[in-house]
Write a protein that binds this DNA or RNA. Structure first.
Length: 479
DNA sequence: ATGTTC
C-alpha cells in the first residue's frame, strides 16, 4: 500500500490526497474495526475512487467497508453534475438491493410456537435461490410498466396499498426510468423473477424487537420491546444484474476515449451529462423500480402468509412497512458543499441514505425524528433500526452504513464452514432456518461478517445516524 | 449480487 492513514478522532480516519487523488479519502471506522480492513484491498479502492473526475470533498467509506467490484462496498462518492462521472461499479451489480422492515401489533413471545410453521409457509409462498422463478409471468409490456412505475405497479395490481408507497424511499419509484435503454436479455431474465428473494445475503427474517435505545423515536416508528417484525432483504435479481453487466461492457470501451487514466478497469464510467451517462441512469432507474416492486410483492405475500397461518384479520396483524431503503444506488441530489449548493450524483454502494429531522424527503409521519435507517446484520446475530442525522448531511452527503460487511470472502466462508451443519447450529441458538441450498448458509455464517453492533456503534458515535432499536432473529428463509 | 464461466 502506498498511501497514508491518519487518525482524526476515535471514529474518523483520513487518507491524505496524494498522487492522482483529486480529493482525500475519509474512512468512518473504529479502533476495533480498522484492523479488519487494513490488509484488504478496500482502502486502495477508496484511493482509486478519489482519482475519478468531478469527485467532491472526499471518497468516503463506512465502517462496514469491504472489497467490491471497482468501488468498495460500504462506499459513498459524490460527483458534480457539471464535470463528474457516473459508474456502474459505484452502484453495484445488484441495483437497488435494499431492505424493508415490517412491524406488527403482535408480541413475539406469543407467536414463538408458530415460527416453524410460518417459516415453512413463507418458504413456499416466496421463491428463493439463484435463478428462482416467481408466481408472476410478465408480458414485455407489463415488465416495462414495472420498470417505470416501481412499487406502485404492484399496488395497482392489488399487491399492497397506497400507504405502503408513502413508507418507501422515493415512494418506490425512481424518476427518469426509460425501458428503451434496457436490453432484450435483461427483460428475458426479469420476466419471471418478480416476487422472488434471490440468493447470497438476501433473506426474509422473522424478528423480535429486543432493545430500544431511543424511546421517542421508537414511538414515532411504532416500535416497541417484544414486538414481532419481519425484515426483507432483496434486490433487482437477474434484471438489474444484466443491466449492470450491459453498461459495464459498453462503458469499458467508452471510457478509453475520455482522456483520463483509470487506476482499475473496473471503474469504467461515463460523464453524467453525456448520452452514455444519461442512458445508464435511465437503465439503473428501471432496475431500481424492479427491485422496489419486488420487495413490495414479497411483503404482500408475507402479509397473506401470516394471516393464513395465524388465522387472523389484517387489522389484528397490522403488518405495515416501517420503511424501505435502498443501499445500492446513484442519486441526483442537491448538497451544500463549502457553503454552496451543488447539484451532485451521489453513489451509495453498500451505504444507506440518512436524512435528518425536518428534511422534506422524509415521510411526514417521521419528519420530526428523521428518516428510518435499516441495518441488517448477518444471519443469526441481530439487525438495527437507526434514524438519519444532520451530521450525515454535513459529512457524508446524507449517508451511513448498510450492514455488517464481510471479513471473509464467500470462498473463505465455505471453507470455514466445511463439515458443519449450519442450520443445526442456528437452531441451537433458537433460530429456525429454511434454505434452498446448503452452500448459501455456509457463505453466510456469522464468522464471515464483522460484528454489526460494532459497525452500528461506529456510525452512531460518529453521528451519521442515531441508534433506535435492535432486533433479534427468530426464523429466516434464504436462497 | 448473478441462468455462481456467453
Amino acid at each position: 500500500m502506498d498511501f497514508e492513514i491518519k487518525k482524526i478522532d476515535e471514529w474518523r480516519f483520513l487518507i491524505p490526497k496524494a498522487g492522482a487523488m483529486r480529493v482525500p479519502g475519509l474512512i468512518f471506522s473504529s479502533s476495533e474495526l480498522m484492523p479488519n480492513i487494513k490488509d484488504d484491498q478496500s482502502l486502495q479502492q477508496v484511493v482509486n475512487v478519489a482519482t475519478l473526475p468531478g469527485i467532491v470533498k472526499h471518497a468516503l467509506a463506512m465502517p462496514d467497508i469491504h472489497w467490491g467490484y471497482g468501488f468498495p462496498i460500504g462506499g459513498v462518492a459524490a460527483f458534480t453534475m457539471e464535470n463528474g462521472i457516473i459508474s456502474p461499479g459505484g452502484v453495484g451489480y445488484d441495483i437497488n438491493c435494499g431492505v424493508r422492515l415490517l412491524t406488527t401489533s403482535l408480541l413475539a413471545n406469543e407467536i414463538r410456537p408458530k415460527i416453524k410453521e410460518l417459516i415453512s409457509a413463507l418458504f413456499k409462498a416466496i421463491p428463493t435461490g439463484v435463478g428462482s422463478r416467481g408466481r408472476i409471468r410478465l408480458s414485455r409490456g407489463e415488465e416495462k410498466k414495472v420498470a417505470v412505475q416501481g412499487a406502485s405497479w404492484a399496488v395497482k395490481k392489488g399487491l399492497g396499498t397506497k400507504e405502503d408507497l408513502e413508507r418507501t424511499e422515493d415512494h418506490g419509484a425512481m424518476q427518469g426510468a426509460d425501458p428503451s435503454v434496457v436490453s432484450d436479455r435483461a427483460f428475458k431474465r426479469g420476466h419471471d423473477q418478480l416476487g422472488t428473494l434471490g440468493s447470497g445475503n438476501h433473506f426474509l427474517e422473522i424478528q423480535a424487537v429486543d432493545e430500544i435505545y431511543d424511546q421517542k423515536i421508537a414511538d414515532a416508528f411504532y416500535l416497541f420491546e417484544g414486538q414481532l417484525a419481519v425484515l426483507i432483504h432483496s434486490g433487482s435479481r437477474g434484471f438489474g444484474h444484466q443491466i449492470c453487466d450491459d453498461f459495464l461492457k459498453e462503458m469499458g470501451t467508452h471510457v478509453k476515449g475520455l482522456g483520463f487514466n483509470l487506476p482499475d478497469r473496473q471503474l469504467a464510467c461515463a460523464y453524467i451529462k453525456s448520452n452514455m451517462g444519461k442512458r445508464y441512469l435511465s437503465g439503473m432507474a428501471c432496475a431500481a423500480n424492479y427491485a422496489w416492486a419486488n420487495r413490495q410483492i414479497i411483503m404482500h405475500w408475507t402479509r397473506e402468509t401470516f394471516e393464513k397461518v395465524l388465522g387472523i384479520n389484517p387489522s389484528d396483524l397490522n403488518m405495515e412497512p416501517l420503511y424501505d431503503v435502498c443501499h445500492n444506488i446513484a442519486k441526483l441530489e442537491t448538497h451544500v458543499v463549502d457553503g454552496k449548493k451543488l447539484a451532485l450524483c451521489v453513489h451509495r454502494k453498500g451505504a444507506t441514505r440518512s436524512l435528518p429531522p425536518g428534511h422534506p424527503d422524509v415521510p411526514e409521519r417521521y419528519r420530526k425524528v428523521g428518516q428510518p435507517v435499516l441495518i441488517p446484520g448477518d444471519m443469526g446475530t441481530c439487525s438495527y433500526v437507526l434514524a438519519g442525522s444532520q451530521k450525515a448531511m454535513e459529512e457524508t452527503f446524507g449517508s451511513t452504513c448498510h450492514g455488517a460487511g464481510r471479513v471473509l470472502s464467500r470462498k473463505q466462508a465455505i471453507k470455514a464452514a466445511k463439515g458443519r451443519a449450519i442450520s443445526r447450529e442456528l437452531e441451537d441458538k433458537g433460530i429456525i432456518v429454511q434454505s434452498r441450498g446448503k452452500t448459501t448458509l455456509k457463505e453466510e455464517i456469522s464468522e464471515a461478517y464483522k460484528d454489526v453492533s460494532l459497525v452500528v456503534e461506529a456510525v452512531h458515535m460518529a453521528g451519521l445516524a442515531k441508534k433506535v432499536a435492535r432486533l433479534r432473529p427468530l426464523g429466516v428463509i434464504k436462497g
